[in-house]
Structure formats: C-alpha cells, structure tokens
Simulated assay, not measured.
Amino acid sequence: MTVSYTVPGLSTDDAEQVVAALQGRLSAYNDLHLTLKHVHWNVVGPHFIAVHEMIDPQVDLVRGYADEVAERIATLGASPKGTPGAIIADRTWDDYSVGRDTVLAHLGALDLVYNGVIEANREVMALTDDLDLVTQDMIIAHTAELEKFQWFVRAHLEDMRGRLSTAGADSESAAADDARADG
C-alpha cells in the first residue's frame, strides 16, 4: 500500500509495513465478525440460547476492532480496504466450514478460528515492536479481549482435568467432529 504521508516520527517505509500488516488484521476482523454472526444464526441444540447470546457482544467488539484498524490505516496515510474482495484477497485461511450444527461443534470450530486470528495478531505485535508502538498497543488490547473470548469458548470444550475435546484437531471440521463426539 502506498503511503503519501504518515504520522510524525514514522517514516513512510515503516508506515507502509505497518499499513500492510493492519490491512491483514482489517480483513481478518471483518471475516471474524461475519463468521461469528454465521455461528449465531446456525447454532442449535442444548445451551443454544446461552451461546447465541454470548456471541453477539463479541460480534460488536470485533466490528469495533475493524473500525479502529481502518482508522489507524487512514491515520498512517493509506486507504483501508473493507470490501468483500479485500477479505478474499487478504485471506490466508479457509472459509468457515460449519453450517447448522450443535453448540459444541461450532465452539470447537471457533476455537481454531480464534487460534488463527490470535496468532496473526501476535505476529503484528512483534512487527510493530520496533516500528510503531501506538499500533502495537491497539493490537495488544484487541488480542487480550480475543484471548478472553477464546477462553469463554474453550470453557465449553474443557473437561474437569483441563483437557480440550478438540486437542490435536487441525481443521474446523475435525474440531467440530471431536467436540460433537465428546459432548
């Protein structure tokens, strides 16, 4: 992304690196809030209402993160891309694969979704450690809340010994299958 100006104290080369990383977060957050709404609409079975209602505040939070990231991109002198095409172009992950299914199946799949988002956020945190502490601070705050929500998800998947029913799953469908079988 071309940056024609940036904030004081940040070179345009550094701003371009930060903007590129933030564009990936913007697309991931847009994808995540759509995925969460998909789960909200498609979760069924026992504990439906608890999970249905647990997800909406997270949708709102993640939509807010997308807005913050887009505004940071603009502050750094670039144009944020929030279109469906941008999500597809930036995507390094597969589309969410679970349709109408049980609470546990969706939560098992969501656990893996959160793994990917959080790991990518941590990469941006490392990149911005030397480039832009303001951006890093924003991503740190986002990651703390995302990790807390993942804990909410995992509490449904965890047994009394702390073992996740989805441990070792390497795809959303495998995690959904493992969670469904354990429930």
Rank of each mutant, 00 (worst) to 15 (best):
D101W: 00
M125P: 00
L107D: 01
Y96M: 01
R91C: 03
E123F: 06
I139Q: 14
D130A: 12
M138C: 05
A144M: 09
D132Y: 11
D129N: 10
E119Q: 11
T128E: 15
I87Q: 11
V117M: 14
D130H: 13
I139L: 10
H142E: 04
Y114R: 15
A141R: 12
V117N: 15
A86Q: 05
D111R: 07
V117S: 15
N121K: 02
G99E: 10
D130P: 09
P84S: 08
E123R: 08
D130L: 13
D129G: 12
T143S: 05
H106P: 02
A120V: 03
D132P: 15
E123W: 07
G85V: 00
E123D: 07
A126R: 02
G116W: 04
I139H: 13
H106D: 04
A86R: 10
I140G: 10
G85C: 00
D129Q: 14
L127M: 10
R91I: 08
D90R: 02
D111T: 08
V103W: 01
V134Y: 12
E119A: 14
G99Q: 03
D95K: 03
L146R: 11
G99A: 09
V117T: 09
A86P: 03
A109T: 14
R122Y: 13
R100V: 13
L112A: 02
